[in-house]
Each structure stands twice: as structure tokens, then as C-alpha cells.
């Protein structure tokens, strides 16, 4: 039976294609948050004073620490990729585990922030919240919605990195085949970039 084999088969290995696919996916994530940034900008413009007042409830110190934590986790992922490219599998794994630890730290701090607010009754439906002005309510809704969605992305990114660690250990990701690690890194950096914008927009309105 005549069988013609394509050189450009869709079933060939193609790292550049995987990377391009990942970037395209990141674009969709970016615009997902983009829609929220749009809502944020409009409502902040319409309620400038209320947004300022509401932002005073947020804890700048905690936000700054979390920014530093996330930036550092981005560093460790980037270093992990470099280590893998150089063939240092052990270093690469350790840097990924470090990244996971930073991710957990970020979520723990976030948890304390949220629970402090909710402890003060500052959540939609609670009594302190109900007494706020409409503009402040919008601020808090956006705060919970955007940081919540971001937190969800931190968790997904963490799981992604966990999977990569497993695949490195089983030899499926290795110095001559590490596109999955690179893509996990790309995803993690995007989570970082979104936080880079969320931080000044919510914490630093002064």
C-alpha cells in the first residue's frame, strides 16, 4: 500500500510550536484580566474618592511582601529553566520546589489578608460592607474578584509546576526535551505580571 510520509507532520515533535501555542494561550489570559482592568479603570474614574477611601482598608505592607515573594518565585522558575538547559537536573528540581514554596507563601499571606477583611465584615453581604458607599462596594467587589481570580491562577500554576517536577523525575522532561518546563515557567511569569499591575492599582491609590 502506498503510504506517503509527510516531513511536516502535525504529529512530529515541534518545541517552537508548543511555545507559540503557550504564548497564544497567555494572550487569552491577559485579555481575560484585561476585561477586568477595563471595568476597574472605568469605575475608578467614576468613583475616585470612594476608591481612595476603600483602598485605605488594604494592608500595604502585606501587599509589598507578596509582590516581593512573587517576583522571587519568578526568578527561581527562570533559573530552573537555565539550570535544565545546562544539564543540572538536580538544581532545576530544587529551584522548582523553591518556587512552589514561594507560591504557598503568597497564598498564605493572601489568606490572612482576606480573613482579616472578612473578620471586619468587609465582604459582600456582611454588615460593615453593607454600610459602605456604592463606589467602595465596587472597589471591594473588584478586589475580591480580581485577586481571587489571580489566586486561582497561582494555584493552577502551582499544579502545573508540580506536574513538571514529576515529569523531570520520571525522565520525561530532560535537558534535550524541556519545553514543558519552559511553558510552565511562561505561565508562572504571566501570573507574576498580572500581580505587578494588580498591586499598585489596589494597594497604592494614595
Amino acid at each position: 500500500m502506498a503510504e506517503y510520509l509527510m516531513v511536516n507532520s502535525g504529529h512530529n515533535r515541534d518545541d517552537q510550536a508548543s511555545k507559540l501555542g503557550m504564548w497564544l494561550f497567555l494572550f487569552t489570559e491577559l485579555l481575560l484580566f484585561g476585561g477586568l482592568f477595563l471595568v476597574y479603570s472605568v469605575y475608578r474614574y467614576m468613583n475616585q474618592e470612594a476608591f481612595l477611601q476603600a483602598s485605605l482598608h488594604l494592608n500595604i505592607a502585606m501587599g509589598t511582601v507578596n509582590t516581593a515573594v512573587l517576583l522571587t518565585s519568578s526568578l527561581t522558575v527562570a533559573m530552573s529553566v537555565s539550570a535544565m538547559q545546562k544539564g543540572n537536573i538536580k538544581v532545576s528540581i530544587n529551584l522548582l520546589i523553591l518556587t512552589l514554596l514561594f507560591a504557598c507563601t503568597f497564598l498564605v499571606i493572601k489568606y490572612f489578608e482576606w480573613s482579616a477583611k472578612i473578620g471586619h465584615g468587609l465582604f459582600p453581604g456582611m454588615e460593615h460592607y453593607n454600610m459602605l458607599e456604592p463606589g467602595e462596594k465596587l472597589f471591594f467587589f473588584l478586589y475580591y474578584f480580581m485577586t481571587g481570580l489571580h489566586g486561582l491562577h497561582v494555584i493552577i500554576g502551582g499544579i502545573f509546576i508540580g506536574i513538571v517536577i514529576r515529569k523531570i523525575k520520571t525522565g520525561k522532561v530532560r535537558p534535550d526535551r524541556y519545553i514543558l518546563l519552559e511553558n510552565a515557567g511562561l505561565y508562572w511569569h504571566l501570573v507574576d505580571i498580572i500581580w505587578i499591575f494588580l498591586f499598585p492599582l489596589f494597594y497604592l491609590i494614595h
Binding site: 519568578s74 515557567g185 505580571i193
Partner: peptide, 15 residues
Amino acid sequence: IASTKALAVINHFMH
């Protein structure tokens, strides 16, 4: 400042 930071992450960390 945020955009500068994002640009640095994109160019270097994201390669």
C-alpha cells in the same frame, strides 16, 4: 513603573 517591570519580566524571565 508597573509596565517597566512587566517588560523586564517578559524580555528576560520569559526569554
